[in-house]
Structures are given as C-alpha cells and as structure tokens.
Design a protein around this nucleic acid. Sequence first.
DNA 1: ATATGCGCAACTAGAATGGTTACTAGTTAC
DNA 2: GTAACTAGTAACCATTCTAGTTGCGCATAT
Lengths: 141, 141
Amino acid sequence: MNTSSRFTVGIHILTLLAYGGGEAMTSEYMAGSVNTNPVVIRRLLSLLRAARLVTSQGGPGGGWQLARPARGITLRDVYLATEGNTLFPMHPNAPNPRCPVGSTIQSALSGHFDDARHALEQQLGQTTIADLVQEVKTQPR
Amino acid sequence: MNTSSRFTVGIHILTLLAYGGGEAMTSEYMAGSVNTNPVVIRRLLSLLRAARLVTSQGGPGGGWQLARPARGITLRDVYLATEGNTLFPMHPNAPNPRCPVGSTIQSALSGHFDDARHALEQQLGQTTIADLVQEVKTQPR
DNA sequence: ATATGCGCAACTAGAATGGTTACTAGTTAC
DNA sequence: GTAACTAGTAACCATTCTAGTTGCGCATAT
C-alpha cells in the first residue's frame, strides 16, 4: 500500500458529522463507525481542525462539530488537510549534477507535476460533504 | 516517507534512454545519473518492461532501450506502470455495517475517486518523454 | 466532587521503501 | 572454447510510515 487511508477516513468522519445534523459527536462514537480506536480518530481530527474544518470541545456533552456547513467543504479541502503535498515525491538522493538529464530533470518535472496536482484537486473540489450525505441517504442499504 | 519515488525516477530513466538516442544503456550508467544502486534501477526497469515501455538485452553491449518512440510514451503510462492503482486506499478495516454511513460510504466514494483518478491521468497523458527531452536540452545548466 | 471527553506522549507490530551483497544465467567478443 | 559483460533475482538490512493501543493529564458540565 502506497499512501495512507487518512483521506478516505477523513471523508468518512466528516460525512458522519454532517449526517448527525450538527450535534457534537464524540471520537468514540466515530471510532465505532470507522471500526478503529478513538485515538486514531482524534489524531485525524486534529489534522482537520488545523485546516479549520472542524472544532472540538472537551467535557461532558462535548465532542466534534463541523466548522462550517457541509455544503462548503469539498473533497479537495479534506485531501489537502490529510495528505498535503505528498503526491509526487522526488528522488531519495539528489541526481547527478554532472549529467545533463540528472541536473535538470527535477525542475523540468515540477511544472508538469503541478499541473497534474491541480487537475486532481480541481476534480476533488467538485464534490462536497453535503453531496455525500445525500448519496448515503438515498443509497440502498 | 509516504509514497515512493518510483514515478519520478521512472520518468528520469526513460528520459535518459530517449536522450541517449537509441543506444542500449546499462543499468549501471543510469544508476550513476540517478545516484543510486544498479539493482534499484533494474527493479524499477522490470516494472517498465512489464508495461511494455522498455526492452532489455544481456551480455556485452547489452542494456536497455525504449520499446517505442519517446513521443509515444506519456507520463500517464509511467504513472500506471510504477504506481498502479494506489492513489486512494480505502479503510484499513471494514467500516461498521450497522451504521448508515459506514455501510455505504465506500461505494459512495468509489465513483468520485474514479473521477479524480481520471482527471489526474488525463493531465499526465498530455506530456510525453519526448517533451521532457526537449525541455532538458533547452534548459540552462 | 465527579464523570466525561479531548490532548498527547509513548510504545508496538506490520508493511513499504531504498540500499546492498551475492549469485545465476545468458550473450558477445576474442 | 574462454573470458568479459550485463541482466535477473533472491536475501538481508536500516529507515520510515501507518495504525493500533495504553496511560495519564486537563478542561468542563452537572
């Protein structure tokens, strides 16, 4: 497996929060839906909070809420919050600077990589968490 | 480290082969440009060969060649050969089937993930190895 | 006060990646 | 035929990442 499941699970819990209708939801409850440990969920939620997608509140009755309406959160937002800019890692060691290709390939690639990343994010920006709530509600169990 | 550099290094060595003009090139030479071990390069080349992008030949004067003109090899081809379908891994454990969201989120996501993957590959398909050779040749050292 | 729920550090197991050595087998040149 | 060369591949190692788990501190609502 190449990348992490953070993106997928992040979408899952944001959809849960939106599906819940605005009530604060605990990490323990979400862990029950994702089928994992609450600490794993809290680690992921802290990334989403850093991206201003959710807020947290301690104490009884506390938990997590969306920071803005589900209609205003896209998969692009979730992707950037959970995966950042790790799509196309460069060489593990610097290429040979005395080789015509090695000395220039990375700068030649960076523009094309930016274009590809942009195309991906543009498409992810077309889908909102509200769309997913709708799909979940209309989908046959 | 999150993902692999196979895609980037794969583009590098295909560009090297195209830059070389058609002569057979050894994995040892390529390793010198990438600044790594020849076995690492051969492992990567075996993936590219499985995708019919290169051919190999043993013995003195042997080495590796492009299987078709650089103009006909796109970054999409290299991406699929080196990374396959690992862009959006699903949950590590199956979500809770008794939760309305958990039971449906994966099938709801698959269509959107396909769309995003397609947008990425479509953009990668716009650039050929021949384009990169041209950029490398015209770029200032 | 007490129970609740987040915050976070620490540790573990498993997998992937990249690097390295060593050996086999086939091909070319002489 | 022999020697040199190159790919093919298995085995092993160190590093890093992911996910899971335990434990404890802290804030808050009742």
